[in-house]
C-alpha cells in the first residue's frame, strides 16, 4: 500500500496585541442623528475579516439600536480617530472595548433624556433594537429616534467617543520576564493526512480546529477566520514557498507561487471554544492568528504519524517528503 494515513495535533498560544511597551490603542467616535440612526467613526481597518461588522454589533448592542440603523465609517485620518493597526489579532479585542465605551456613554445620554421625558430614573430604563423600555416591561415606551430627536431639540450631546489603551509594559530586557501581553489567544488543531510513499505527496483529508474565541461576537465570521486560517496553514505546510536564486525571486507569478485552491483545502471542522476573557469586549479574544498557527505543526505531526518520518524543514513538498522516505529506506528504517 503506497498511501499511509496519519493524525497530528498542534497547539499554540498567541499574545494578543502588541506588548513590548508599544502603543496599543483603540478609539471611536459615535453619533446619533435626530432620526435615531447612528454613525460610528471607527479607526480600525477592515481587511475583510469583519471588524466593521463587529463594531456595528457592539454599538447596536450597547446603544440598544437595531443593527440596520448603524453605519460604520472606515479608517480615515480626517474623519476617524486613531485606533491603531488591524494586526496582532487585536482589532476586536481592543477596538471592541473602545466602541463599547463610546456606545455606553451615548446610551447614558439617551437614557438620561428619556428619564426626563417619562419622569423616572435613567437606571429604570433600557433600550433594545431601537426601542426604550422600562426594565422588565414588554412594550416600549418610546423609540430611540424619539429620544434622539428630543436630545437634539434640547441642545444635548448626542455623540460620544471611546478610547482604550491596551498597552503593556515591556518584559525585562535580560530575562524577558514580565506580563508580556494583556491577554492571549488559544487554539489546538487536529490534521488528518494521507501520504503517498511513492511520490511524497501529502494530501490533507481533514482539519478540526478548536479555537478559543472567548465569546464569538459573530460565530459565522469566527468560523470564516478559522477556516481561512487553516487554509493558509495548509499552504504554508505543503505548497507555498518563495524561491530565491542568489537573492533574486523566481516565484514571481502565481504559476510558480502555489496557493491552495478549493481542491487542495479539505473540510475544516470548526470547534468554537468560548473561555470568557475578563479583559475582552463581552469576553471576546482575538482569533485571526490563533486560527492559522496550529495547522502547520499539526500537519507535520500527522505526516510523522503516517510514515514515521519527521519533516523538520518547511514546506513538506513532495520532493522533500520523498527524499526523506528514500533516506529512511536506505537506512532500513522505513517499512513500505
Amino acid at each position: 500500500m503506497t498511501k499511509k494515513r496519519g493524525l497530528g495535533v498542534g497547539s499554540m498560544f498567541y499574545g494578543i496585541g502588541y506588548g513590548f511597551n508599544r502603543a496599543d490603542i483603540g478609539s471611536a467616535y459615535i453619533e446619533m442623528a435626530d432620526d435615531g440612526t447612528t454613525t460610528v467613526y471607527s479607526g480600525a481597518c477592515d481587511m475583510g475579516q469583519g471588524i466593521m461588522t463587529v463594531v456595528a454589533q457592539v454599538a447596536a448592542e450597547v446603544v440598544g439600536a437595531n443593527i440596520d440603523t448603524i453605519r460604520v465609517v472606515a479608517a480615515d485620518t480626517t474623519s476617524t480617530p486613531d485606533a491603531g493597526p488591524t494586526s496582532g489579532s487585536r482589532a476586536t479585542f481592543v477596538q471592541g472595548i473602545a466602541v463599547h465605551e463610546a456606545a455606553s456613554d451615548l446610551h447614558d445620554q439617551l437614557m438620561q433624556t428619556a428619564a426626563g421625558m417619562f419622569e423616572c430614573e435613567k437606571d429604570e430604563l433600557e433600550a433594545h433594537n431601537g426601542d426604550v423600555y422600562l426594565k422588565d416591561a414588554n412594550s416600549p415606551i418610546a423609540s430611540l429616534a424619539e429620544v434622539a430627536a428630543r436630545v437634539h431639540l434640547l441642545g444635548g450631546r448626542c455623540a460620544s467617543w471611546g478610547w482604550h489603551d491596551n498597552s503593556t509594559a515591556d518584559v525585562d530586557p535580560a530575562t524577558s520576564q514580565g506580563d508580556a501581553y494583556a491577554s492571549y489567544g488559544w487554539a489546538s488543531q487536529l490534521a488528518e493526512v494521507e501520504v503517498d510513499t511513492e511520490t511524497g505527496h501529502v494530501k490533507v483529508l481533514k482539519i478540526v480546529s478548536a479555537t478559543d474565541a472567548g465569546k464569538a461576537i459573530n460565530p459565522v465570521a469566527v468560523e470564516g477566520q478559522i477556516q481561512g486560517g487553516a487554509a493558509m496553514g495548509v499552504g504554508y505546510a505543503l505548497y507555498e514557498q518563495h524561491i530565491l536564486d542568489e537573492g533574486v525571486p523566481r516565484t514571481d507569478s502565481l504559476a510558480f507561487y502555489l496557493v491552495p485552491t478549493s481542491m487542495d483545502v479539505p473540510e475544516i471542522q470548526c470547534e468554537i471554544v468560548e473561555v470568557y476573557d475578563p479583559k475582552g469586549p463581552f469576553g471576546a479574544k482575538g482569533i485571526a492568528e490563533p486560527a492559522t498557527v496550529p495547522t502547520t505543526p499539526a500537519i507535520l505531526n500527522a505526516i510523522y504519524d503516517a510514515i514515521g518520518i519527521r519533516i523538520t524543514d518547511t514546506p513538506a513538498t513532495p520532493e522533500r517528503v520523498f527524499q526523506a522516505i528514500q533516506e529512511a529506506r536506505a537506512r532500513g528504517e522505513f517499512k513500505d
Binding site: 475583510g48 487554509a231 496557493v259
Partner: peptide
C-alpha cells in the same frame, strides 16, 4: 483563488 475563507463557506 480565495485567500480568506478556506472555501468552506
Amino acid at each position: 483563488i480565495c485567500r480568506c475563507t478556506g472555501y468552506s463557506k
